[in-house]
Amino acid sequence: MLIVMGERTVRLTGLALAMIYASFIVWLYVRQPQTFAEVTGGLTASVGAYRIDQQAFDDGLALFRRDEFEAARAAFNRADSAGQDARTQFYIAYAYYRSGWGRLYQDNEHFKLGLERVDKAIALAPGHRLIVDDPELQMHTADQLRAELAEGMRVEASDFNPMRMFRKRK
């Protein structure tokens, strides 16, 4: 009887482990984490236990408000090392937007990176809807930021309008 029970336990445990392992493999192939931090961060995020480094985020926000965008991005990346927090990814995208913005031209490389981050933020946000209530910002939704970045990367007739020199950075 003990042997039968032991075998049943082994079989049940084995089945459960196989299912968990298979789910983990499917998750890896779907989410494509690129570093170990992203693997652990993604797993903790999937059970709602992921937390960003709040101190690093606050540092990033302070730098962002002083227009030190490269340093701000470094701090935001440190705060969300697994790339699992929609709000932090939004700020990183916003920092790329402000770095790349110019009166006469846009830096397409920065805009492209910004677009990647804002797409990630949208993918991470619940219901793909992200609103950031920050009075310092002029674009509060990820959709607005995405549209601005995408528009900046397109070459259109309006790009040659001299009045563009008087537009303001958002």
Partner: peptide, 22 residues
Amino acid sequence: KAVTEAVYLPALFLTVALLGGL
């Protein structure tokens, strides 16, 4: 053995499935 069928073989082949596309 039950342990081979329930644990070792699935673990081994799932590891191959994981590493095959890495």
